[in-house]
């Protein structure tokens, strides 16, 4: 088994958990404390990546460049990473300035069937002499052969690895095994896994991914992340210690950062709420939760019904504008009859 690389997305996916209100002070403290703990990369920025600060998914308190600059000052051994979804950010306006600010590594993400939109961006990052990884988001919506086909495209553009993102936390362990094995067998580059905890499987699925051959794990300290949160990195690290798998991580240091730094920036405990559970069952993007909650209150409907309907319509990440439409339709329907969604709709 190859050595696992740990990508820390606490300051990226964690941004969703705190309404994109990260400050440069918080980033500075986090990066200075986590530096030297053996993490391969600390990924910093808006939850949906560069250029995503928007009314659609949430406005950032701090600009991308301010965040990256603050992190850059603290990181020496650990790479500074960032994330971008083409369609939100562009090379000219977001990616080039981020690289100029000192980013070492970029994860370029897209919905799992749309890899060809990442070509320009992966190629650009590699031409600039930086590391580029491809990210297939909402991977539960495509079959393993289809995912391999898309991952191969990213490999051909020059990606140094492909990370499967279980954006809805909808994966079961068997699915993780089959998909990771398919990619590992078909690719020449490392395969990674980014979990969400909607079904309380984030650590287990990440562990399963490693067993199936994944060599990149993307997670967060304390599990801080969208919806039910992510794979709690210090827990996975502890589990790997018990398994006597060498990680290169300083477990105590990560525990301290989790305990002292991450808890200080959390606005609420990172737990699996019922709407995160429904979101995982419905296979809807984890970061929809706060928007769904607001729409449910505004239009007087059950947040769970909104999630079920979004799942039925196969809404993907970035389509937050459907939430309002669905909530309004449900409110309209509610006037006629008071049926609630049946859970069979989720299977």
């Amino acid at each position: 088994m190859g050595k696992t690389l740990f990508f820390d997305s606490t300051l990226r996916d964690g941004s969703h958990a705190i309404g994109h209100q990260l400050t440069t002070d918080q980033i500075t403290v986090y990066c200075s404390q986590a530096e030297g703990a053996g993490l391969h990369t600390i990924i910093v920025g808006h939850g949906n990546g560069l250029g995503a600060s928007s009314l659609q998914v949430g406005l950032s308190k701090t600009t991308d460049l301010e965040m990256l600059t603050a992190a850059r000052r603290q990181l020496q051994q650990t790479r500074l990473g960032t994330f971008m979804i083409p369609g939100f950010g562009t090379i000219k306006e977001n990616l080039a300035p981020a690289l100029a600010a000192g980013v070492d590594l970029v994860c370029i993400g897209t919905h799992c069937t749309e890899a060809d939109v990442t070509r320009q961006h992966i190629e650009f990052v590699r031409e600039q002499g930086k590391e580029a990884y491809g990210v297939l988001m909402m991977y539960h919506m495509a079959t393993p052969p289809k995912l391999l086909e898309e991952a191969l495209k990213m490999q051909s553009y020059g990606a140094l690895g492909v990370i499967l993102m279980d954006s809805a936390g909808a994966s079961l362990p068997e699915m993780v095994t089959t998909t990771v094995q398919t990619l590992v067998a078909g690719l020449q580059i490392p395969v990674g896994f980014h979990a969400h905890n909607n079904l309380s499987l984030a650590v287990a699925n990440s562990y399963t991914a490693i067993k199936a051959g994944a060599t990149i794990i993307d997670g967060t300290l304390r599990g801080l992340g969208a919806g039910a949160g992510n794979c709690q990195l210090e827990v996975l690290a502890g589990l790997l210690v018990k398994e006597q798998i060498e990680t290169g991580l300083n477990l105590y240091q990560l525990m301290d950062v989790s305990e002292q730094v991450v808890t200080a920036l959390m606005q609420k405990p990172q737990e699996i709420t019922t709407i995160s559970l429904i979101s995982g069952m419905a296979g809807v993007f984890s970061a929809f939760a706060p928007h769904v909650k607001k729409a449910a209150e505004r239009f007087g409907v059950d947040a769970r019904d909104i999630f079920v309907e979004l799942g039925r319509r196969k809404i993907i990440g970035g389509q937050e504008d459907f939430i309002v439409e669905v909530a309004m339709e449900l409110a309209e329907r509610k006037k006629d009859d008071n049926i609630s969604y049946q859970l069979e709709a989720l299977s």
């Binding site: 369609g87 562009t90 090379i91 919905h111 993907i316």
Partner: peptide
Amino acid sequence: IDEFTQTTRDAIVAFTGVPRAKAIIILNP
């Protein structure tokens, strides 16, 4: 896809006079 987002954004500014605009594109399979 970059040209699409930038061109759309520029056109919104040009036609409406709004000081700042943003365009996001999503492809749903």
